[in-house]
Design a protein around this nucleic acid. Sequence first.
DNA 1: CGCCGTAGTATTAACGATAATACAGATCGG
DNA 2: CCGATCTGTATTATCGTTAATACTACGGCG
Lengths: 336, 336
Amino acid sequence: MAGSASRLKDIAKQTGFSVNTVSLALRNSPRIPDETRRQIAEAAAKLNYLPNQVAKSLVMKETRSIGLILTDLTNPVLTAMAQAVELELTKRGYTTLFATSNNKLDLERSLIETFRARRVDGMLIFPCQHGELEHIRNLRARNFPVVLLVGDADAGVDAVCMDERAGAHKAVAHLLDNGHQRIALLDSASDKGNYEKREGYTSAMAAAGLNVDPTLIITPDGSDVASGYLAMETLLQNDTGATALLAATDSLALGALRYCIKSGIKVPDDMAIFGFDNIEFAEHAVISLSSVDYDIESISKMAIERVISLINSKGLLPPPRITQVEPDLMIRESTL
Amino acid sequence: MAGSASRLKDIAKQTGFSVNTVSLALRNSPRIPDETRRQIAEAAAKLNYLPNQVAKSLVMKETRSIGLILTDLTNPVLTAMAQAVELELTKRGYTTLFATSNNKLDLERSLIETFRARRVDGMLIFPCQHGELEHIRNLRARNFPVVLLVGDADAGVDAVCMDERAGAHKAVAHLLDNGHQRIALLDSASDKGNYEKREGYTSAMAAAGLNVDPTLIITPDGSDVASGYLAMETLLQNDTGATALLAATDSLALGALRYCIKSGIKVPDDMAIFGFDNIEFAEHAVISLSSVDYDIESISKMAIERVISLINSKGLLPPPRITQVEPDLMIRESTL
DNA sequence: CGCCGTAGTATTAACGATAATACAGATCGG
DNA sequence: CCGATCTGTATTATCGTTAATACTACGGCG
């Protein structure tokens, strides 16, 4: 207790210098001569001094911390984002305050307030409803640095993200190129108003002159493997004549794949399966999975650079910029 | 800017009351009459007042935040822990400061210092080297509340964790019961001095009167699926006559499983495979994977309860307690 | 020899909150 | 009708820093 609670004042008392001199010495001010600095450093070491960041933050009006709000960590993509963000922030001397909204808008709102009260210097947010951004726009309107990790051209807030629409479009276009016409979509996100992938699907179909058959669009209950399994069952029961599908996540795709294997449906011959996010297990599935691929690490880095540049922009924030990275297709056995 | 920066002083100015009265009113002190409270609340709302947690922390000498240090987030188990910890802490009004050590002891040390400087009220740590805990014991010696998320009976620091040794022992015992004698171990952690699983393996073999054949112990380069794949290849090349294996993680097990399927080795007939951690993909593998299973959520909750109880223990910390939860076996197709 | 710049250090004032204490004016009991 | 209690509010100190300003020698220079 005594050891942990040492303050500038204690060093001052020990050395006979004033608190301010001690502070300057420890911060290597040129005004302090070497001998004084040495004495003070010595005393600081002996007392096991550790500067109190809380006090420092109060006077400096910056905490060197940023808030990261994701929907959850069950999704490997968000996990990878959290990892990349934390790594990069630590490297830059920032601390990460982390929280998950569990896809609840109210919780998201209250987490934002909590972080604001804690005076984080900026926030990175993966919003749970891509269309419900009013509270985040408000934040920005108060000149608070925020960057979204998923976003639209008209978000009204800075964003650095993958272009989900383009990814879905590309994947469906690929399936069309391979001769498929009855292409299903497994996407649970669209019930929360996150229509990007669905729009990409639709636009690709439209570009090929095909109307979208609503029975080809399945909305699983979740985004996990089990949901994909059940969704596949549903799709086949509907007897839609689908010969290919795009799943909104690799987990869904892996579930669908598993159902096919269990049911003796040949992948890719009877059913081509396209995943999304290219997680580790996609590559290593029994039948390796084609997937929409993008570099999460570099997106995360760019997002951090953006939020830090906003933090450093003195005065008013610059107008929001949306950066959408176009994903690539990773073609594997499941769509050959 | 003006909007975000409102302080008690501003409300005081608006309403004509003193700063202290405002503070008391907003904290619902009984000494403040309703009418005054109303006026102050109104002004606070109009000014969009949000208490400054930094200032509050300084005077209250508590931040209501705890630091969570994991090795990384690529491991689904740690991901689940992070998720569970964050959820529970938020529920209890704490904020989570999150960081990963990337299995580097130096980084772990410096992260601890960073969190200490930020005056977190306590820490939850998944140490990267289970035998290197001196720096953490030092923390505790300074009366700082720490709880390990993995640990040994003689850690000298509080710990709430799964009993890896018991888990490995049980799994191997199960394989022995099924008639296997040549049982391999795939474990990359033991090169970092984390011998728990290996010890469990050894003790189970010893209990069956079997000596451990070192060629049966493979140390993959990592803990991911690809490493498991390569490790399986190595194992077979060594021509050890192994008929079963225990992998230290499900990812390794899935990699091994994949190699077997590619090579026409029948699972479980030619090779029984036991995984560890029971992640989602274990259940849904082509051949569903037996795995050592435990309730991460409840362990995380207990760990949080422990650290909070340490925080609330006024005066000296109580002597450290180690709680080890014994895992169960989830038996599936891969070891039938 | 007196003035000035400067090197080294100290003093004072923030930062935005809480906590302890002080102080008026009303109320009440004897 | 006067001291004592209570009610509502203000004043002051404090948390551990940094920042701005103030002082005190001392050396150089005209």
